[in-house]
Each structure stands twice: as C-alpha cells, then as structure tokens.
Computed example of a mutant assay.
Amino acid sequence: MRVTGYVIHTRPFQDAKILVDLFTKELGLVRCVLRRNAKEARATPGSFLLHEIELAGRGELKTIRSIEALESGSTLQGNSLYSAFYVHEIIERLVPTNLPLESLFLLYQWLVNNLRQGVSIAPLLRRFEIGLFEELGIAINMASTARGDPLQPLQLYQFHAKFGLRPYFGDQPKVRPIIYLDGRIAQAYADGKWTDKAVLAMAKELHRAWLDNALGGKTLKSRSLLPSRSHEGRRLWQVPVFEYKDYI
C-alpha cells in the first residue's frame, strides 16, 4: 500500500533496522519497521518533509518497503524546531494508531509549512491543539455557557473541565476552575481570533491544563525546550484571571 506522510519519530531497533512512526494522510499514525542497507546504516528519513511510502503487512507493525521525500524543505531552527518536537510528542502520546484523521493530517501539514516560513508560533500551536482536541472528542466549548446561554461580554466566567463556562458572582467555588475569563475573551476564542493577545494568553494557560488532563498528568518532555512563563496577572483563589481590559 502506498501512502503519503511525515516521519514523527525514529529509534533503533534490531541490527540494521529502525522503528519509524509515520503520520499519514491515509492511515493516520502508523508504527513501522525500516531495514537499512549497508550504505544507509546511519541514514534516517527526514522529519518535516512529505514522503511517499510503500507499506507492507497486515498487523499493527507495518514494514516500510520504500520511502522517498516528495519535497525539499528548509531546516527548522530554534523555537520553530522545538515547537515541532512538541507537536510530534503530543501526536505520539495522544493520537490512536491506524485511525485515518485526514483533517488533523492537513492541519499538521499547514503547521509545518507555516513554521518553515517563520510565522508567529503561538497562534499556530493553539490552532493545532484545538484541531487535536476536536479529533480526540474533547473539544473546548467557549461559544456558550454550560447551560447553553449566550455569553455576556463583561460577565466574568469560571471554566471547569467537566462543566464548561459558568458565570462567577464572587463566591469561592466548591470545585476549583481551570481559569476565570470574561465573556469577551471567551467569544473571541470561540471565533478563532488568534491575533488577539488576550485570547492567546488565555488559550496557552487553558490548553496546557487541557493537555495535562488528557495525558493523565504525565509530563511532556518537549515543554522543557520551549519558553515557559507562568501567568503574571490577577488571580482569584490562586486561579488565573483573564479580562480583556488587561490587554488593551
């Protein structure tokens, strides 16, 4: 079977073999074995390049019969490279194997192409995370309250992992929320306004907690490579607060 895809991860296996994880358009995330000949003993398929791959085998572990790059891309460096490593790790950790996810594949392709062009990283990562959440069935609803009520721009809300958005009226919550935010930021997030500084700041905090929950609290190694800064604004009951007025 011929597929198109990207190399997500490689590691030594046996003798002249390596294990290769591919993210493909046709099959999703696939675990494979690649045998290298003597001339290719130290060569591995390049990351961040679209490949055409011929696969064999009916089991969970496929065999790569041939793999050929379909493009020559510029090398990612610095934070762009570290961001790509981060995306690869969350794909590896969260995406089921052998499940076609074409929309997520296209989103990954879009991400890599934009990282090559030096586009601002934060909006790219937040948009990819949203696509991942949707594919995993854990999408974040910021378009309305947990009861389906429309958002009020100046109302402060508390956002819970299980309950979604609930209006906050000043009492200490019985269940600690992930964040507090006003209705204007919530609506801008739902509308995909990724040039908005308030939306990006809120989404970074929210998505980190959302991923931690999906990972069962396990640490992402690639996070140590990326710039990390805790919320420096106001807090309620030690929970970050995001209000649009603070970003004007």
Rank of each mutant, 00 (worst) to 15 (best):
M1N: 10
G5I: 03
Y6F: 15
V7M: 04
I8Y: 03
T10S: 15
D15V: 08
I18S: 06
L19E: 13
V20W: 03
F23G: 02
V30N: 00
C32N: 05
R36C: 05
N37W: 11
A38H: 09
A41I: 15
P45C: 11
P45G: 10
P45Q: 09
S47K: 10
L50N: 04
L50E: 00
H51D: 06
E54S: 14
R58I: 08
R58L: 10
R65E: 14
R65L: 08
S66K: 12
I67H: 12
I67T: 10
E68R: 13
L70W: 08
S72Q: 10
G73C: 08
T75C: 06
N79E: 14
S80G: 10
F85K: 10
Y86K: 06
Y86H: 14
H88S: 14
E89A: 11
I91C: 02
R93V: 01
R93C: 05
P96H: 11
N98P: 01
P100E: 05
E102P: 02
F105S: 00
L106V: 00
W110N: 04
W110M: 02
Q117T: 07
V119T: 13
P123W: 08
L124D: 00
L125M: 05
R126L: 11
R127P: 02
F128Q: 01
E134C: 05
E135Q: 13
N141H: 13
N141P: 04
M142A: 04
M142H: 06
A146C: 07
R147Q: 15
D149H: 09
D149A: 12
D149C: 07
P150R: 12
P150H: 12
L151H: 07
L151F: 10
P153W: 06
P153R: 09
Y157H: 05
F159S: 04
G170A: 06
G170Y: 03
D171K: 14
Q172A: 08
P173I: 11
V175L: 15
V175I: 11
V175G: 02
Y180Q: 02
A186Q: 01
Q187R: 14
Y189T: 08
A190H: 12
A190V: 10
G192L: 08
G192N: 05
T195W: 07
A198E: 01
A198T: 02
M202C: 14
L206P: 00
H207Y: 11
H207L: 14
D212V: 03
G216E: 09
K221H: 12
K221T: 10
S224W: 07
L225N: 06
R229K: 14
R234F: 03
L236F: 14
W237F: 15
Q238T: 12
P240R: 04
P240M: 04
V241A: 08
Y244V: 09
Y247A: 03
I248V: 12
